[in-house]
Computed example of a mutant assay.
Amino acid sequence: MQFSHANAIWYDYPALTPGVLFAEGVPGDGRAVSGLAHFYALAGARLAAGTEADLPEIQAWRRAFSSMGLKPTQYRCASESLLRRFRKEGALATIHPLIDLCNAVSIAFATPIAVFDTGRIAGGLTVRYAEGNEPYLAFSGEQEYPEPGEVIFADGEGLAHARRWTHRQSVRSAVRADTTAVLIVAEGLHASAGIDVLQIITAVREGLDGLGWQTRKSAVLSQVRPTFEF
């Protein structure tokens, strides 16, 4: 399978830096995640001087959402939503060891991180503009269709696994207790994304090692190296 961004995405968002990681593991081992407090502390320190809206990583995504015709305070990128919750509640909900890890790293770096169960993806994923006929299964169980021109994560069968780019994933490929292989995607649009995304992938890889998952492959992509095979 392959992961990539369509040429039109690279053209419209030349500052984009994606980091990707493919890992496999044993489901349901119940192993606790260590080191989350470190990432929470990093997030807390950054929020001490203001809100998530002040962070350059979030500002870059707000500009991108505005360029897509979306109201940034109505449709937030995933990392902004997590940071907002963390600032108000002082913690994040426990969901799944792998998701808990990626959410913690996401708020520490204020950068959205998506995790897809590759067993529920057909033929890889492409981040592209929607035609409007790609079925998206929401967590509510409702089937939706993206607006034409909306940025989605689409698989080889034309199913949408995320809507409004980094806003929300589909329940279709969400991590479950029986998930055995995942594709993890971190995307930055801010000025230091090239450095930060590499650090994000390293942090996630180290966390996966602690959970007993095996990282098979990882990469930081670019317009000249846009495809990740896994």
Rank of each mutant, 00 (worst) to 15 (best):
G188A: 09
Q143T: 14
L211P: 01
R120E: 05
R84K: 08
A154F: 02
F116G: 08
A160C: 05
Y11A: 12
L82N: 10
G141P: 01
D29A: 11
A78Q: 14
A104Y: 01
T202M: 01
V185T: 11
L159N: 11
F3L: 09
G132S: 13
I113L: 04
A203N: 13
A45H: 11
L211E: 02
P14E: 04
G69T: 10
S192L: 13
L101Q: 01
S170D: 03
E134M: 05
A130F: 09
G90L: 12
V33Y: 00
A130P: 08
N133H: 09
F39H: 13
Q223R: 15
A15T: 13
Q169F: 03
G149I: 12
E24Q: 08
E187W: 00
V204G: 00
Q74C: 09
A45D: 07
G210Y: 05
I152K: 09
A6L: 03
G156D: 10
A53L: 05
F39S: 01
R76I: 05
Y145S: 07
G212I: 07
A138L: 09
A53I: 02
F109T: 00
H161T: 02
C77Y: 09
N133A: 13
G50M: 06
Y145C: 08
Y145N: 10
K71C: 06
A8N: 13
E150H: 09
A154Q: 13
E24I: 06
V151Q: 07
S218Q: 13
S218L: 11
I99F: 06
R172W: 03
T111E: 06
T215L: 03
I195W: 00
L183R: 07
M68E: 14
I184V: 15
N133C: 07
I201N: 03
F22V: 12
R46C: 02
S67D: 15
R76T: 08
G194A: 15
E89F: 10
G69C: 05
C102Q: 12
I99M: 08
Q2M: 09
E57Q: 13
I200E: 00
L92F: 03
L137P: 02
Q169L: 07
S79T: 12
P135T: 06
C102M: 04
V105D: 09
R176D: 03
V105R: 12
E150P: 08
H167R: 06
A174C: 11
D178S: 07
A114W: 09
H38E: 11
L42K: 14
G25V: 03
Q199C: 14
